[in-house]
Simulated assay, not measured.
Amino acid sequence: MTATFFQRLGAVVILLWLAVGLAACSNFVKGGDNRHNIPLSGGVIQGLRNMGSSPGQGMVVRIFKEESVLEVWKATGAGAYRLFKTYEICAYSGDLGPKFKEGDRQSPEGFYTITPGLMNPRSNYYLAFNTGFPNKFDRVHGRTGSDLMVHGDCSSRGCYAMTDAGIAEIYALAREAFKGGNTSFQLQIFPFRMTTANLAKHATSPHLDFWKDIKEGYDYFEMTRTPPVWDVCEKQYIFNPAGSAPLNAAGPCPATVSNPALTAKLQADEADLANKAEAARVAAEKKAAEEAALKERGAAVNNFFSGIGSGIGGIFGGQGRPEAQTGTTTTLPTPSTQRP
């Protein structure tokens, strides 16, 4: 009797365990669909072939807020990366600048590493991948936030929202890159294309130093067409450190791998930015002075016409009452009643 009871109990436990396991699998993708496994289209595969790449090659994703675009770059057989496709971003939250804290409705900026564990096939927003915020840089600065995604549905609350068709293709490209043996891909998020002209336009921004920091990684990719190795030290990004060991985010920075061309460009851009920023400052001061002078002239004109109006009103008001002008009473002559 006891043995039979425990056998039945064991069977029930096994059935419950199987049911829970099966339920978890069936809920891995909301609604039980297979959208995360939809193959790449023939046109995408052919497009990759035409540029000397393939679905299994590495990829880099770049986001530009001001331009509202997401770029997918793919590695080629020659080793360099080439731009495969540009996708329009439907919406992102907040303004230009990094995210600081949970609930500020600000989309992040910086360099992030996307691993298979950050892919989200069961997103309520069709498909998604997590940006990995907060990364090492964000954490050392005490920044907070969670579930910052690149997803579909064209709706954003701190995320980057794509069309469903767009995120479906981006997701599939990432999936195939992982299947090809790549353990991660790099996500680079910028406020705008990091030119000195764009930086000069925002020279008074409190984020300028941060933007100049991540600009080095942008320039490296632009020059070499390969993603930089990034880490954090002295509470700032460092690109292509000489060693391979992880760095203390608040500790001293080591030497970097020498790249004379990049160093020369950074120095030239720094000087160019200083010149453009100074020119922008002078232009802004001149514009402010002109606006102040125009406002002053306008006030003077208004006062002038206001004075004329008061004078005219006084003149016409005095003619209606002559006695008011002299302060005396005028006596009119009385007509005579005698005949001559």
Rank of each mutant, 00 (worst) to 15 (best):
S244I: 11
R193A: 02
T183L: 04
A203V: 06
L83N: 09
Q46G: 07
E222W: 06
L332R: 12
D164T: 03
F28I: 11
C159D: 12
V44K: 06
N50L: 00
K287R: 12
R321L: 04
G318R: 14
A324E: 10
F210C: 03
F129L: 02
A289Y: 09
I170R: 02
L266V: 08
T330Y: 14
S244P: 03
E102G: 04
R122E: 08
F185R: 03
T226C: 01
Q186P: 05
P241H: 12
P206G: 10
Y92D: 01
K235M: 08
D104P: 12
C25H: 14
F185N: 04
M194F: 07
N240C: 10
S258Y: 11
N240R: 06
V13S: 12
T326S: 11
D153K: 13
Q267D: 13
K101N: 13
A11Q: 14
Q325M: 11
K99L: 05
G320V: 12
A255R: 15
G79P: 08
K295A: 12
P241Y: 14
A3G: 11
W211H: 02
L96N: 07
R281S: 11
R35P: 10
D147G: 03
T2R: 13
L9Y: 13
R62W: 01
M1Q: 11
N130K: 06
M162N: 05
C154A: 09
A293T: 10
R122H: 10
A78Q: 13
G311H: 11
T337H: 10
A174D: 06
S41V: 09
D269L: 02
F133R: 09
N303E: 15
S68Q: 11
G180L: 00
S155D: 13
Y171Q: 08
S146P: 03
N198F: 06
F210K: 03
L247K: 11
N302Q: 14
